[in-house]
Amino acid sequence: MSQIHVTTKINGDETEFLCGPEETLLDVLRDHLGMTGTKEGCGTGDCGACSVTVDGRLVCSCLMLGAEAEGHEIGTIEGVAKGDELHPVQKKFLDHAALQCGICTPGFLVAAKALLDRTLEPTEEEVRYWLAGNLCRCTGYDKIVRAVMDTAAELRGA
């Protein structure tokens, strides 16, 4: 099967890769590029563990072909912190104990950051609906919602 050559930008870095026509962006990230921070929980777009951004839009990377990344900017969990400096939402997840096992955490952080990039004044209901595409089986979401609300409050200087 012939491979497709793709040029894209991942977390700000120009990246080229070859992938099969059937391979998802998630396969490419994990199996070709070694970026295993993005997780596979279902492969059918139901759990959100594989959340990435494509040109700033929140996407399940298991539902997008690797070849479709051509010319787009991809954001993954590995790009949420800037070097050693955690993004405020990462810090708040730790402060609020908003994770237990941690498998869903990368997806939640990518999704939460995408929300906070849009608004710093989300209501609890907005946070809950924005994150409804991300499954967490450990926490019951309470501490996750608090962490996101608290991040928003900090970022707007409240």
């Binding site: 994990r30 730790l94 402060d95 104990a97 994770l99 941690g102 990368p106 952080l109």
Partner: peptide
């Protein structure tokens, strides 16, 4: 005390290695 977990940074940055990683 409500301490921060020692594996916290790994878990929020994608560095932690799970079964399929």
């Amino acid at each position: 005390n409500r301490v921060t977990r020692p594996d916290g940074i790994d878990k929020v940055t994608g560095r932690a290695r799970f079964g399929a990683d």
